[in-house]
Amino acid sequence: MASQKRIAKELSECMANPPAGMRVSLANDADVHKWHIVLEGPPNTPYVGGTFGLVIVLPPEYPFKAPVVTFATRIYHPNVTNDTPGKICLGLLKTENWKPSFKIQTVLQAVRGLLVEPQPDDPLEARIADEFRSDRKEFEKNARQYVTQYAKGPVKFDKKLTSTAGDAAATPGASSS
């Protein structure tokens, strides 16, 4: 398959020279289409001190189709669904915007950028977006509390959750709306 070479190259680049604050590995060595990323909460954000797991699934048509990126760790963020796996709203990954010349590096940087600068005008969690806009202090408090609760210690990539096909049932306690 034509994409193997490209993926192998991107993988070796990402492993040798990972983007700032990230560690890249394969979910299992036999499959280059599923990546595990450990992302450090960027400094000067409420996420600092937390470690977040990201799962990247490359479709068979990659790079002609966009990868699917999800958070394996719960995160309090306007652009990430408040459940596991957390789905991300990222313009870059939308079909009409994706280009085969985009790299996973680009995607990872965009995800990190989202943590540094949330986009409340394009929210997946409208309530959190509202809070982000109107009561920044409360938002940061909640985000930090989520970090303490979910993002401390080594990242656990749940086998079940790394598949992108089925949505795991919402965890009890997930706030809706």
Binding site: E61, F64, K65, T95, E96, K99, P100, S101, F102, T106
Partner: peptide, 20 residues
């Protein structure tokens, strides 16, 4: 790239160069 755009996405009038 082109067949993906045309066949799967039904795009024609605004297919851009694949470059970032």
């Amino acid at each position: 790239y082109l067949s993906q755009k045309i066949r799967e996405e039904g795009e024609a009038a605004r297919i851009q160069c694949p470059a970032d």
